[in-house]
Amino acid sequence: MKIERLGQDKIRIFLTFDDLLERGIQKEDMWREPPKLHDLFSEMMEQAYNELGFEAIGPLAVEVFAMPAQGMIVIVTRGRSSRDDQLLEEDLDEELYEMEVTMEQSDIIMYAFADFEDIVSVSKQFKSSGLTNSGRLYSYNEKWILVFEPDSIELNSHHAIIALLAEYGEATSVTYAMLEEYGKIIIADEAVQQINQHFTF
């Protein structure tokens, strides 16, 4: 579980599928098991407090982005409440938050790479395995991010593509909307094919 602060009242939590499995949560449970998710959310809020001093008090807006290739991103935004300044120490053990939850699912595959050489290597592997020539390449926060739309990938090669991406890169906690807004597009179409054409060694 990775937690980062996006602002004074906003944090982002990234959980891989391994994180979820460790807690007994399957991918399907994210949509139909409120008690398990409630326990998970309590654990996330406790870790956010311990690591960042972020208190889950008052109204919270919770956005959950489920991404089959990467895991789950949870963005928590704390609203202001008139109770904020009146809380007593003994109240902290009680549940003090009201949640408004928005859930979205995205089949877009996104993996981040620290070095451009890793992008070249994974592209070569795609070519030799006959997997894909598609994809878009972005630059974001000093990392390279390869993005694949689900309709550009054959169903039977989905797992092989994710396995190769995971070998050279890492699942990213950035949402696609954030990447579109703040990332810089380097190769807009057929990124794998173009990399293979221009980088040979």
Rank of each mutant, 00 (worst) to 15 (best):
L6W: 08
L6D: 05
G7E: 14
G7A: 15
D9E: 15
I13D: 00
F14D: 02
F14I: 03
E22C: 09
G24V: 14
I25H: 02
Q26G: 11
D29E: 05
P34S: 11
K36C: 05
H38E: 15
H38S: 13
H38D: 13
L40A: 07
E43W: 13
M45Y: 09
L52C: 04
E55H: 08
E55T: 04
P59G: 07
V62I: 11
A66Q: 12
P68M: 02
Q70L: 12
M72S: 04
V74W: 00
V76M: 03
R78T: 02
G79H: 05
S82W: 15
D85N: 06
L92H: 09
D93W: 12
L96C: 10
L96R: 08
M99W: 04
M99A: 12
E100H: 05
T102M: 06
M103I: 14
E104D: 12
I109H: 00
I109M: 11
Y111Q: 02
A112V: 01
A112G: 10
F113S: 03
A114E: 15
D115E: 12
F116N: 08
F116E: 12
V120F: 03
V120A: 13
S121D: 15
K124S: 07
Q125K: 12
S128H: 10
S128M: 11
T132H: 04
S139Q: 01
L146R: 01
L146C: 02
F148I: 06
F148V: 03
P150K: 04
D151I: 08
S152F: 10
H158Y: 12
H159P: 00
A160E: 10
A163W: 01
L165R: 02
A166D: 11
A171E: 00
T175L: 00
T175G: 04
A177C: 06
G183K: 03
A188I: 08
D189W: 05
E190H: 08
A191R: 00
I195N: 06
